[in-house]
């Protein structure tokens, strides 16, 4: 199919510090090739948005970055993913530690059937012994960072299943923040959350950006253009174009990107 990412001027390397770098990344589900030859550099402490029509493997790409694809039987990865310059697919990698460093918020919020407090404390409890007061502190800090603290501070012992959808979404974020990741992968729900909830989460992203490298998969063009610094356009398992957000949205070089961001398909 010609167009390999490496030598193309469609794939721009961001300036500044690099957090993640993939080269020649490919993903197979059995015979089916879900991703081909993705080579991209993701900037540290910036928001990178991945866009593209449904089924274009953006989510699969995201799941390569913390090796969640390992859980799918028959999934096979080729190429390299470097996190701070080290290959995460190296056999010496402890996947649990990798996933602690590269946190992920899923499309649908999935509170564990425990209290709000226990949901957030779940990660810290896994990764080492904390005193009661340390845990309290982490829980509060994470819930504050996820803009949920004020709403739940009096009901921390109540079941997380009683929260509203938007609150559950923020709880999922708090739960990830509590393990102090370096990278935050966010898979946006296709269906719109209620607008207020979405807005709060967007604000949250911008706040978090100062400390985390954030990669979001989104279907909301408006959101992508507003919050992200870099954007990549995926089509049929390929990364078509990647660069600064203004460029992708206002002056794309590839016709397909142009068609997509102008809403001609997808």
């Amino acid at each position: 199919m010609g167009m390999s990412g490496m030598d193309s001027d469609l794939i721009v390397r961001p300036e500044g510090e690099v957090k993640i770098e993939t080269s020649g990344l490919g993903l197979f589900y059995g015979e089916f090739q879900a991703l081909r030859d993705v080579s991209v550099t993701i900037a540290a402490r910036r928001i990178t948005a991945l866009i593209g029509p449904s089924g274009c493997s953006k989510t699969s790409f995201l799941r390569c970055l913390n090796r969640m694809n390992d859980l799918i039987s028959g999934a096979r990865v080729v190429g390299e993913v470097l996190l701070d310059g080290r290959d995460i697919y190296h056999e010496a990698t402890d996947v649990a530690v990798l996933r602690k460093r590269v946190g992920m918020v899923f499309q649908t919020p999935n509170p564990f059937p425990m209290s709000i407090y226990d949901n957030v404390a779940y990660g810290p409890r896994l990764h080492g012994r904390c005193s009661r007061s340390q845990l309290d502190e982490i829980v509060e800090k994470s819930l504050r960072a996820a803009a949920l603290w004020e709403e739940v501070k009096d009901t921390l012992r109540k079941s997380a299943l009683d929260l509203s959808g938007g609150q559950q979404q923020r709880l999922s974020i708090a739960r990830v923040l509590a393990v102090e990741p370096e990278v935050l992968l966010r898979d946006e729900p296709c269906s719109a959350l209620d607008p207020t909830a979405t807005f709060r989460i967007e604000e949250l992203m911008i706040e978090l950006m100062t400390r985390y490298t954030i990669v979001i998969v989104t279907h909301n063009m408006y959101q992508a253009s507003r919050v992200s610094h870099y954007a990549g356009f995926f089509l049929l398992g390929e990364l078509v174009e990647y660069g600064p957000t203004e460029q992708i949205f206002e002056n794309p070089k590839d016709q397909r990107t142009d068609d997509y961001v102008r809403g001609r398909f997808g």
């Binding site: 602690k100 999935n110 564990f112 896994l126």
Partner: peptide, 27 residues
């Protein structure tokens, strides 16, 4: 127990056993 609960736990850096012990069995 929904698969997504396991995935969420693993994504937080839990080992498979931690996931079984702390999420799957309680759920």
């Amino acid at each position: 127990v929904p698969m997504t609960l396991r995935q969420n736990s693993l994504a937080l850096g839990a080992t498979q056993w931690q996931t079984i012990w702390r999420v799957v069995l309680p759920a």
